[in-house]
Every structure is written in structure tokens, then in C-alpha cells.
């Protein structure tokens, strides 16, 4: 039964552990699989390792030599630790907690930043197409189509975050990793991004770390609950919110801690 699910999974985590200091695991032997075209929410209290786990998937931890990641992560069946990290990061786009458009680039340039950084040259028509398509898919096109040459940092916080999502989507990744993308935004911007994520599900597999349980309930198909570095529970969101299997999940969801 489990094997049949694994075959069509796009991402598989096998005994993934991450430690910041030797002997202390921030993420402890997590096993999970992610089906294509789903939204999976990773929940848990602060410091439970959810962002740490997410950042293992695009090998972000390698920027910091003290962090050790062990285990296997299979992206479309390929072990990411045997791939070129730059290729892994192209396939697994990431959106950060705080919107971080490149301050020197225009809105247009920001969307194409991934191509520029990978030294992929495009014709003018290809560029225009990618920019328009990416901005449309994050519902930003109508708002910025007349000011594409303005700096990305002139946009509001919510628009900046959508621009960053467009920048990640422009490279046509397989996976979209989102690290609390709406935690710094107002409720209206948050609602717009949530709507957009549900639309994007048709084309992308999304893993979203969230602090916000109702957000997870609103948009995700599957949920993971992590506590103290351990993956406590993993299942469909519906099942987790209605009939949690683990006592700790139940306590967290009912607000007993967290």
C-alpha cells in the first residue's frame, strides 16, 4: 500500500535529520512523501524544526558549514545530495518569510532574476512572455503592468511577496517551498496569496510552513505536525483537524500549547 503511494510521489524524505550543533538534532529522522499537485502544510510550535526541514529540501543549509543534514531526499526519484545544488534549487523554488525582491532590479528584472543568475539568455519576446505569465499567475499583472520598470521595492508588502513568488515560478520549478510566506502580511494580502496558492496547485506541488493553523486548514490537502524536531503526525488535513491520531497534535490544534 505504502509503496504504491511512493511511486507517484514527487518528493520523498527518508530519515532526514538536521543538526545545527553536533549531537543536537533540530530535525529528527523525518520520513515523508509528497504527491504532485498538492499543498502540504507543515505546522508546529516555534522552534520545532519546520523551517529547518523545508530548507533541507533545497539544500539551503549548505550555506552554513556548521549545519549537518543526513538522510535521503528524493526529488522525482533522484537523490538531491547527488545532484548539483544549483539544479536542485532551480527545481525547488523557495519563497521566504519576508519578501525579498532584489533592490537594484525593476519588477521586470526581478521576475527574470532566476534566468539572469543562471546565465540563461532569452529573446525579448520570451522575456515578455515569461514576465507576463508569471505575474498573471500570482494575480499581480493587472496591478503592475504599467510600471514594470519601477523598482520592486516600491510595491507594498503583499505585492512584494507576490513578486517573489512570481520570481520563483518564472523558472518553472517542480516544487514550491514556502517558509511562512504570509506571516509578515496583513489579512487582505494574506487572503489574496492563499487564493493564488489554491489556483497554483494545478501546476505545482507546494509545501508551505505555517504558524497559522486556520491557514493550513483553509488551503492544504495534507498536513504535517512537527514537535521538537520530530514528525508527530502526517496525513490529510481533514483527518488531522477532525480526528488527530496523536495526543500532541490534538493538544496543539486545540490551543493547549504553541
Amino acid at each position: 500500500m505504502e509503496n504504491s503511494i511512493n511511486i507517484d510521489s514527487i518528493l520523498e524524505l527518508k530519515d532526514v535529520s538536521v543538526s545545527y550543533t553536533p549531537g543536537k538534532l533540530a530535525v529528527n529522522e523525518v520520513n515523508a512523501y509528497f504527491k504532485p499537485q498538492t499543498i502540504t502544510a507543515i505546522m508546529g510550535p516555534s522552534g520545532c524544526g519546520k523551517s529547518t526541514l523545508l530548507r533541507a529540501i533545497n539544500r539551503m543549509h549548505e550555506l552554513y558549514p556548521d549545519i549537518v543534514t543526513t538522510g535521503e531526499i528524493l526529488l522525482k526519484g533522484q537523490n538531491i545530495f547527488k545532484m548539483n545544488p544549483m539544479k536542485v534549487r532551480r527545481l525547488a523554488g523557495m519563497v521566504f518569510q519576508r519578501a525579498n525582491p532584489f533592490p537594484t532590479m525593476s519588477i521586470y528584472g526581478n521576475v527574470l532574476a532566476g534566468y539572469k543568475l543562471n546565465n540563461i539568455s532569452l529573446s525579448k519576446t520570451e522575456k515578455d512572455e515569461i514576465v507576463e505569465h508569471s505575474l498573471r499567475s500570482v494575480n499581480l499583472w493587472e496591478e503592475v503592468k504599467d510600471s514594470l520598470n519601477k523598482k520592486g521595492t516600491f510595491l507594498s508588502g503583499g505585492q512584494q511577496q507576490r513578486l517573489c513568488i512570481a520570481r520563483a515560478l518564472a523558472l518553472k520549478p517542480e516544487l514550491l517551498l514556502m517558509d511562512e510566506p504570509t506571516s509578515a502580511l496583513d489579512p487582505i494580502s494574506t487572503a489574496r496569496i492563499e487564493e493564488m496558492l489554491v489556483e497554483l496547485k494545478d501546476q505545482y506541488t507546494i509545501i508551505i510552513v505555517t504558524h497559522n493553523m486556520s491557514q493550513a486548514a483553509r488551503i492544504s490537502d495534507n498536513s504535517m505536525f512537527m514537535y521538537l524536531g520530530e514528525l508527530v503526525e502526517f496525513g490529510t488535513t481533514k483527518q488531522m483537524f477532525t480526528k488527530p491520531k496523536d495526543k500532541r497534535t490534538e493538544d496543539y490544534l486545540t490551543g493547549a500549547f504553541g
Binding site: M60, R89, F96, N100, F102, L117, N118
Partner: peptide, 17 residues
């Protein structure tokens, strides 16, 4: 901010670029 460097690398850029 470090997020700027991380954003660049997360798009698959090499360290030099």
C-alpha cells in the same frame, strides 16, 4: 540582509553570480 543572498542562491544562482 542575509535573505538577499539566500534569495539569489535559492533561484539556482552560483555563488559568483
Amino acid at each position: 540582509p542575509t535573505s538577499l543572498k539566500e534569495a539569489g542562491l535559492a533561484l539556482g544562482g552560483s555563488y559568483a553570480t
